[in-house]
C-alpha cells in the first residue's frame, strides 16, 4: 500500500537549557513561565544566569539590581551578580535562544 502524505503538523516543545528544573527565586514562577510582567515565555522574557551559577528571569533580576540596597549582589549568594560574559553590569548578557528543540 502506498501512502501519500498530504499534510502534516509539526509540534515542538522547548525549555531553557539550564541544569535544574526550578523556579525563579524572585517571582517564584517556573523558569519555563514568564516573569509577572510578561505574557509569553521565551525570547521576550529571557533568563539570565550569573557567574555565580544562579539564574533568574532577566526582568526580575533587573528590578533587584537597580535597587541601591541590592549593592549589585546576587539574591541567592550575595556575590556580585555578573552576567555570563563578565560585562560587570548585570543583565547586559542574556541566555542564548531557547535550546533543546525537540520535534
Amino acid at each position: 500500500m502506498k501512502v501519500k502524505i498530504r499534510k502534516w503538523n509539526a509540534v515542538a516543545t522547548w525549555r531553557w537549557d539550564i541544569p535544574e528544573d526550578d523556579v525563579c527565586g524572585i517571582c517564584q514562577v517556573h523558569f519555563d513561565g514568564t516573569c509577572p510582567k510578561c505574557t509569553y515565555p521565551g525570547d521576550d522574557c529571557k533568563l539570565l544566569s550569573g557567574k555565580c551559577g544562579h539564574s533568574f528571569h532577566e526582568h526580575c533580576i533587573d528590578e533587584w539590581i537597580k535597587q541601591e540596597t541590592s549593592k549589585g549582589q546576587c539574591p541567592m549568594c550575595r556575590q556580585k551578580f555578573e552576567g555570563p560574559e563578565g560585562t560587570g553590569a548585570a543583565a547586559n548578557e542574556t541566555m542564548e535562544d531557547p535550546a533543546d528543540m525537540e520535534v
Binding site: 524572585i26 517571582c27 517564584q28 514562577v29 509577572p36 510582567k37 528590578e63
Partner: peptide, 12 residues
C-alpha cells in the same frame, strides 16, 4: 501591584 500580587498568590 502586579508583581507583588502574583508572587503573593504563589506563596499563598
Amino acid at each position: 501591584m502586579a508583581f507583588a500580587s502574583k508572587r503573593l498568590g504563589k506563596e499563598l
